[in-house]
Simulated scan of single mutants.
Amino acid sequence: MRAGSAAVQQQALKDFHQAMSNFFAGTHRRPTWRKAGRHEGFRVVAVKPGDVRRVSRRVSQVKVPKVGWVRFRWSRPVPNGARSFRVTRERAGRWHVAFAAIPDPIPAPGTGEAVGVDRGVAVSAALSTGDLLSAPGLRAGERVRLGRLLRRLARARPGSRRRAGVKAAIARLKARETDRRKDWVEKTSTDLARRFDVIGVEDLNIRGMTRSARGSVEAPGRNVRQKAGLNRGILANEWGALVRRLEDKAPGRVVKIDPRNTSRTCSACGHVAGENHKSQAVFSCVACGFRGNADVNAAMNIRDTAAGHAVTARGGPPLGRPANREPQHDLPLTG
């Protein structure tokens, strides 16, 4: 205890007190115990302007109490208002330093355009413009290597050095996949915030949708394996992270709508029927003959509903939808 910084240890107690206060207030869940290799790190407050200095084009240094100057890779400029930073170590063995600062929101383009975003498992995000976006994951060779490592892990003796090495290799692959998905979320959310004034998304209860179907001993669940695969697909496509970053970058411009019937409603004539949704990728209206990609059709319904909540000041048509729009038929299938 004496070898460490007293300020860092006091800050850990303050953070724990704040976490428990949030739990008893009902705004957050109960804080969990730290686990070795997963929650390694500490926070430093009262950072002075001279505690961060630039060494070269890609290298900088930060002054850590009781440690001294620590080098880190300069990935972006440190904001002037940053007064604290957190040093963490992930399971892949990489150390990170993150400076706490609230960036300015992205200004709206002012074009009056709206976009609908339909989130799915086969397609991560389908836009009303017709774009189909997919969150990247591991490549084919990396998936083969991951399967090989998992088999080696199953044969390794618990507590052995070999098992620790295999776990570290798996963590490095998982970290690579996580980095790619986070990068996709940041780039996609930034692009949408810069291009559109209104962004419509479905108001989904992701925590409830990804709840386990295992059940209990008295009432075991059904199709547990299929439900587990669906849960992994939902979480892998970063549904929650995409909307959360959109709300951070475009505050007040993200409209959440009721998800009911968005995939069964024809975006051309408004007819609602389960027979319209022929398959995962094909939508064919039984009333007017409109045909197109099912995800894009749902995104168009989301856009129209979201734009209805943001009418122009002159009382004109909703944003992103021209007046007297004529239905279009036989649109080409995409995806």
Rank of each mutant, 00 (worst) to 15 (best):
S216C: 03
S216M: 03
S216E: 03
V217Y: 09
A219H: 11
A219L: 15
A219Q: 11
P220M: 07
P220Q: 02
G221R: 00
G221W: 00
N223S: 07
N223Y: 07
N223H: 13
V224G: 07
R225K: 12
R225W: 11
R225L: 06
Q226H: 12
Q226W: 12
K227I: 11
K227S: 07
A228N: 05
A228C: 13
G229T: 10
G229H: 10
L230R: 07
L230K: 05
L230I: 14
R232D: 11
R232V: 14
R232S: 10
G233W: 04
I234W: 01
L235T: 14
L235D: 05
L235K: 08
A236L: 07
A236C: 13
N237L: 12
N237V: 07
E238F: 15
E238A: 12
E238D: 15
W239K: 02
G240K: 04
A241I: 10
A241E: 11
A241C: 10
L242G: 01
V243A: 01
V243F: 01
R244C: 13
R244I: 08
R245L: 14
R245Q: 05
L246I: 03
L246P: 00
E247V: 04
E247G: 04
E247Q: 05
D248C: 14
D248W: 14
D248Y: 15
D248T: 12
D248R: 08
D248Q: 14
K249C: 13
K249H: 14
A250G: 00
